[in-house]
Design a protein around this nucleic acid. Structure first.
Lengths: 141, 141
DNA sequence: ACAAGTATGCACCTTTTGGTAAGTACCCTA
DNA sequence: TAGGGTACTTACCAAAAGGTGCATACTTGT
């Protein structure tokens, strides 16, 4: 039986220095990345989080316009989930017409900060990604 | 007409220092974060990327065992997409029985690095997230 | 008076995603 | 000779995700 451990000699530095062990501490989560993904899973959550982080407490309508392409249903739904997950704080001013805004909790703020490198990566590699996507769409479907 | 711009005075530092502008450079993408999300969207891609980053070029079977809970269908599918998107490099040794391994391209490696903070966040806040999830599951389903 | 904006809720439907289970062709080990 | 490992592929199906459109109740602008 061939062990995968021994196929990669320890002398070779194939492992990224900063990409360290995914420690499976708690049951139900395979690693830290898994935890984060459960919280921000969904088409819109990371963007919502990020826009709130940028705009400070932001009104519903403004957020709606910022996150291009979301429907009301989705925005509300995701905001609710982010709220019960303790990342977003909803403030209802009980006015008429309605006024509500959304800000981040300390937990939400720290998650938003963790998204910064991902945002930078996208900005830096936007052209390359756009090119690949264009090819993919032209050829096979 | 009330402008949202003016409701937040510039004197207040509500905007996170490191969470800077989502610059909409190319059409089709709203911002850098949007670009990244398009590439790693899917239940397994970030984990796959991360495990490959850790294990150097890793064989299919080993990856399969590392990413707990994936089916063959999903793993293969996501690996293919990651390959055409230029993040993963597949090496087929043309042996019998089959031997194939998966490594990262330069682009993939940089993306994996951008995932590091997200992984750390999850590790640090694992307990809090687990608590919130438990409450949520107990009460309103 | 009428249209538009405010922040949602709800019903209905389609699309996407993902899981299960089977099969392939070949090898090695017990 | 039977069983397990290798890296996939395919067909079928269930569940989740997400979109559309309508409704609310009140205000402001034209």
């Amino acid at each position: 039986m061939i062990s995968e451990q021994t196929t990669v000699p320890p002398s070779e530095a194939r492992i990224l220095p900063s990409t360290q062990a995914c420690t499976p501490i708690l049951p139900g989560f395979t690693c830290g990345l898994d935890v984060s993904l459960r919280v921000i899973a969904g088409k819109w959550k990371p963007l919502i989080l990020y826009f709130i982080a940028q705009g400070g407490p932001i009104r519903y309508g403004a957020l709606r316009r910022a996150v291009q392409g979301v429907s009301d249903k989705m925005l509300i739904q995701q905001l609710k989930e982010l709220e019960v997950d303790g990342l977003v704080k909803r403030t209802d001013y009980k006015e008429i017409p309605p006024r509500v805004d959304y800000g981040l909790t300390a937990l939400g703020r720290s998650l938003a900060e963790a998204l910064v490198p991902l945002c930078s990566w996208g900005t830096q590699n936007m052209e390359e990604v756009a090119r690949v996507f264009a090819e993919r769409d032209l050829s096979g479907q």
